[in-house]
């Protein structure tokens, strides 16, 4: 096993674009701690899956060697621009495409100038890999892939990295509970929009901390439905699939609201 590290992180641009906002301080501090762990783990590559890179036909993988530009979030454009400069491990990404197709998961590489990189990918990479020290493999969230399919795709990505002899870090990017404030709020007073969501989030985080992998998996579907979890919590499926699912515990580096929704920065222990 050449797993270097694994994280589940938030993809909202708000803490990234307003790092000084007090309700988001836990998340930004958590991200900084996670970045230190990642740097210490010195992976050869990061296998990253963001719920915000949506696909509907086939599984898409970024295969352009360098992707740079400025993205403006379609919801939070008034908070500023998201610059990015991503280095892609194209050899691994192309191998993932090939392997996925062999396994019956129709896949395609994406190698286009001006391809729109999603907010979650930019935020996670910007926080965790700010200098671009570690190349990336980016896989899309095909909305018709369920939890198990996502897990299989992550697993094949990890196996392919191993075949190439690479130490890999795994990053699943997405939110926790999804209830948001639907009226404008003072962001300095942001909080979880639903106390029930907050309880659910804390319950799941607590189980992760204790390494109760089976309980977390058993509760995933119920949690996703009850707390409107981002994309059915498929970003966890990505982490589980790429790590074999047997973490011994987790460190919650940060937990907090993003306009009422739940978000966390989690590092898994193996």
């Amino acid at each position: 096993m050449t797993l270097a590290a694994a994280f589940l992180v938030a993809g909202s641009p708000l803490p990234y674009l307003r790092k000084g906002n007090p309700p988001w301080a836990q998340l930004t501090a958590g991200y900084k701690a996670a970045a230190r762990s990642l740097a210490a783990a010195r992976p050869d590559v990061i296998l990253l899956y963001s719920t915000q890179w949506i696909a509907v036909l086939d599984e898409l993988w970024q295969t352009r060697q360098r992707v740079s530009g400025v993205h403006v979030d379609e919801n939070w454009y008034e908070y500023g621009d998201l610059s990015y400069d991503l280095k892609i491990d194209t050899a691994l990404a192309e191998a993932c495409v090939a392997k996925a197709n062999v396994l019956g998961i129709q896949s395609k590489g994406v190698d286009y100038d001006a391809f729109p990189i999603d907010t979650g990918t930019i935020v996670a990479n910007g926080f965790l890999n700010p200098d671009g020290a570690f190349p990336l493999v980016l896989a899309a969230n095909n909305v018709y892939h369920d939890f198990e399919a996502t897990r299989r795709i992550a697993s094949l990505a990890a196996e392919t990295a191993e075949m190439q002899g690479k130490r890999y870090a795994v990053v699943g990017v997405g939110g926790l509970s999804g209830t948001i404030f639907r009226d404008e709020i003072n962001i300095a007073e942001d909080r979880l929009a639903s106390s029930e969501d907050d309880k659910w989030n804390r319950r799941i985080l607590d189980l992760m901390e204790k390494g109760e992998t089976r309980q977390v998996e058993d509760l995933c579907s119920e949690y996703a439905g009850a707390a409107k979890v981002d994309m059915g919590f498929k970003h966890l499926a990505w982490v589980l699939g790429a790590t074999g699912g047997q973490y011994k515990g987790a460190r919650i580096h940060g937990y907090g609201p993003t306009y009422g929704a739940g978000a966390a920065v989690i590092e898994f222990k193996f």
Binding site: Y112, D113, F115, P116, D118
Partner: peptide
């Protein structure tokens, strides 16, 4: 330049 994130092979 608008590149469709879902159909980048068709729409740039």
């Amino acid at each position: 330049k608008s590149v469709d994130p879902i159909f980048p092979n068709l729409f740039r």
